[in-house]
């Protein structure tokens, strides 16, 4: 029986960990290193860092955060956001990442997947697909965190990136992301039935039951999640952000909690999945 990976997703904007809804309206939640350390110790199988504004501004601000993390966190680290060239990928791997996630650059120039897979190995190259359902019920790929319509259909693209040598695919349902309404199983199954590379699903988890449902109903390998874990962590760990300048701190300062999510720790989530006969580490 395969082991399902639980992968916390850390969206990064400048020096901060942020969280949005539909990948927008970003709230600052704290320091990325505090979250990374907690998740590592709490049983995360891998960490996914996304520089959510890098592809807008052409900047790679993640290197420092990655090399700090890799000093004392010994699980796989995947990094995405704004990586365009083979040299960008090399720099991130040098900083301590094990895998990179490509979206915008890959859609603009699919050859980069092939070149990167040849140079760094397929298992190092993850392609992120951000999907939004369009009128007529078809799913299309978006880039720049769900902002740019590409006209590329998700299933066609998933098959193509597999052929080009992508080692894994992360599917994000932008429609569900940050809503807590559960995973988009229709979208996931459309892709799962057409490719054979490992699939990581992301977007929509609002409670433990959602994880169990998507694992039981879809042929997937890993679940990536942010909100249900982040909002649980900050219940007890509102970091000192007094020196910080960039970003929207209103939520953190208000002391409010989120209403659409039943938050959990990774440990609790894994215990729940194990009880349901799902194999986790």
């Amino acid at each position: 029986m395969k082991t399902i990976r639980i992968i916390p997703r850390l969206d990064i904007k400048g020096p901060n960990l942020v969280k949005g809804i539909h990948l927008e309206g970003l709230r600052v939640l704290g320091k990325p290193s505090d979250f990374a350390k907690f998740y590592y110790e709490n049983g995360a199988d891998e960490l996914l860092f996304m520089d959510v504004v890098a592809s807008l501004y052409d900047r790679n601000s993640l290197h420092d955060i990655i090399s700090q993390t890799a000093e004392n966190i010994f699980i796989p680290i995947t990094v995405g956001g704004g990586l365009r060239t083979l040299d960008d990928i090399k720099q991130v791997l040098r900083a301590g990442a094990d895998k990179v996630s490509l979206n915008t650059a890959a859609i603009k120039n699919p050859k980069v997947i092939e070149q990167a897979a040849l140079r760094f190995g397929s298992s190092t190259i993850v392609v992120a697909i951000e999907a939004i359902k369009q009128e007529g019920g078809k799913y299309f790929c978006f880039t720049d965190n769900g902002r740019e319509y590409t006209g590329v259909e998700v299933v066609d693209w998933a098959k193509k990136v597999q052929d080009l040598g992508a080692g894994e695919i992360i599917i994000t349902s932008v429609d569900r992301e940050g809503t807590g309404r559960g995973f988009d199983e229709e979208l996931i199954n459309e892709i799962a039935s057409n490719v054979s590379v490992p699939l990581i699903v992301h977007g929509g988890a609002g409670k433990k039951e959602h994880f169990k449902e998507v694992i039981e109903n879809c042929n997937i390998d890993a679940v990536s999640t942010a909100g249900v874990l982040h909002y649980d962590f900050i219940k007890n760990n509102r970091g000192d952000m007094s020196g910080a300048s960039e970003g929207n701190f209103d939520f953190l300062l208000s002391g409010r909690s989120v209403k659409n999510l039943k938050t959990t720790t990774i440990k609790e989530l894994k215990a729940y999945l194990s009880e349901g006969n799902i194999n986790v580490r």
Binding site: K2, T3, R5, D45, S122, S123, G167, E168, S196, V197, P198, D221, A222, R281
Partner: peptide, 19 residues
């Protein structure tokens, strides 16, 4: 093998997971 010899299901290669 790309097909599991025991149950004829597709095998994901490379293996990328905890085992």
């Amino acid at each position: 093998p790309i097909i599991n010899p025991l149950n004829n299901e597709k095998v994901k290669v490379p293996q990328i997971t905890w085992n």
